[in-house]
Design a protein around this nucleic acid. Structure first.
Lengths: 168, 168
DNA sequence: TGCTAATATTTCGATATCGAATAGTTCGTG
DNA sequence: CACGAACTATTCGATATCGAAATATTAGCA
């Protein structure tokens, strides 16, 4: 390798500069680029954790979607939530069901639908992974005080509140 | 569909509650969940734009990586930067080269390496897509004033500066 | 120099994903 | 009530991705 791997900070600065040079607005690009860079790094970390648990990131997406929904979901809903084609969900659910992490049940109200829910084992996997990743995430936010974290969360939540109005 | 699709805000609240119930720390989960939710929504939007340009998200990742690097990169580096196996990069580069967006050249200093760079057309695609997406991104940050954007960027950049110290 | 280990890309077989087509069910409306 | 449109999950063929092995080159070291 000719040069050392640049720091995340350096990569961020360069990325923003590149986007601004290409015609982006700086105040926008600083935020968006930072958000994406952070997610990317987190994803890399999660990938390692999930490898240890022998779960693919797509399978993990299904588990978290079910956990967050708090109720059974259909394959179509899961496909939508996890950004995947409905036809791909069939096989994913086959594998997850085979491992005993989710279960399929017929919807009593609509025979074209199938309701997928987490099993006990699925919930166990979820809780374990969340507790593990919380450790890393706390490290990531280590340099921010309680008030700064709250302010960061507040600003992000303002942005999130706007999301629905956009692609409508 | 039995129930209406919940708002992004509502999804965020539920997700945080779920993670906290599973053992995560609230001040951490509010931030991390918001960052991930935002990225997910942005990714959905980019996917649509890229479909219009007939570029897959993986191919786009290659183009942006090259643009941000500002210099030619090897297939291995691109695989690392885009979170993909090196063997997958071979075919991706084949397709991109076939479309005239990137070009491969032998590294004069090391015959095992290949240097990939953006062509004129590749740069054109990049600039076009950035200008397009900047429009959406500006909308997303619409509810934040200049000072709030700067504060949000600052806080995120503090977090990013810490990333390298973690998985080391 | 000569030999081994490390690096970089590609090939190959297995698996995952996609988009289109299929089959079954429900909904709306005449 | 009947019929067509819309919805839901699945199957199927084509393509993308993965991990391991193969190939070629470079780097380190005695």
């Amino acid at each position: 390798m000719a040069k050392r791997t640049p720091s995340a900070q350096e990569l961020h600065r360069r990325a923003v500069a590149t986007y601004v040079a290409a015609g982006g607005e700086e105040s926008v690009q600083r935020v968006i680029t930072a958000v994406q860079g952070l997610t990317k790094k987190l994803d890399q970390w999660y990938a390692r954790q999930l490898t240890d648990l022998d779960v693919s990131s797509g399978e993990w997406a299904v588990v978290t979607s079910l956990a967050k929904a708090g109720e059974a979901l259909t394959p179509s809903q899961l496909a939508e939530l996890t950004n995947v084609a409905p036809s791909s969900m069939t096989h994913r659910l086959d594998k997850l069901a085979e491992r005993g992490l989710v279960e399929r049940a017929a919807d009593p109200d609509n025979r074209t639908r199938i309701l997928v829910s987490l099993t006990e084992a699925g919930w166990g996997l979820f809780s374990q992974a969340i507790r593990d990743s919380d450790v890393v995430e706390s490290d990531v936010l280590q340099d921010l005080g309680d008030d700064e974290r709250a302010e960061l969360a507040r600003l992000l939540e303002v942005v999130i509140a706007r999301l629905d109005d956009i692609d409508a």
